Amino acid sequence: MTRRLLASIHDVGPRFEAQIDALTDRLTDLLGCRRFAMLVVPDHWDEAPLSASPAFAAKLRSWADDDVEMFLHGWRHRDDSSDKGFAQRHMTAGEGEFAGLSKVEAAARIADGRKVVEDAIGRPVTGFVAPAWLYSPGAIEAVQEAGFALAEDHMKVWNPQKDQVLARGPVITWASRSPARIRSSLMFSGLARAVLPIMPTVRIAVHPGDVAVPALLDSIDATFRRFTRTHAPSRYADLLR
Rank of each mutant, 00 (worst) to 15 (best):
E97Y: 09
P197W: 07
C33M: 05
D83F: 12
A52V: 00
L239A: 09
D46Q: 12
A87M: 14
R114P: 04
A215Y: 07
A55V: 12
D112I: 11
H90L: 14
L240V: 07
S8C: 09
A237D: 10
P14N: 13
A22M: 11
T126L: 12
D210V: 09
D112K: 14
S8M: 08
S102P: 06
E47N: 12
L27F: 14
E17V: 12
L217W: 08
A194P: 00
S8W: 02
S184Y: 02
A120H: 09
L134R: 03
I9D: 01
A192L: 07
H44G: 00
G85M: 11
P49K: 03
F227D: 11
T173F: 02
R193V: 05
A107E: 08
D83W: 11
R109L: 15
A57D: 06
P200N: 08
A93M: 11
L5G: 09
D79T: 01
A232T: 15
R15P: 02
G169I: 11
T28E: 15
K84T: 11
V165Y: 08
R183T: 10
W63V: 07
P14H: 04
P54A: 01
F128M: 07
A222I: 05
A106K: 09
Q19M: 10
P49L: 10
L39S: 06
L60C: 00
S62E: 09
V68L: 00
H154T: 09
V125E: 02
I121V: 15
L150P: 03
R183P: 00
P214S: 13
R34Y: 04
L166G: 04
D163A: 10
A237C: 08
A205T: 13
M199R: 09
F36D: 08
D112C: 10
R225S: 12
I220F: 08
A149I: 00
T173Q: 07
Q144S: 11
C33Q: 14
I198F: 08
T92V: 13
L50I: 06
S102F: 06
T230F: 10
I220L: 15
T173H: 01
L216Q: 09
P14Q: 01
R123I: 06
I198A: 15
P233D: 11
D210W: 05
L186A: 04
F98A: 10
V40K: 04
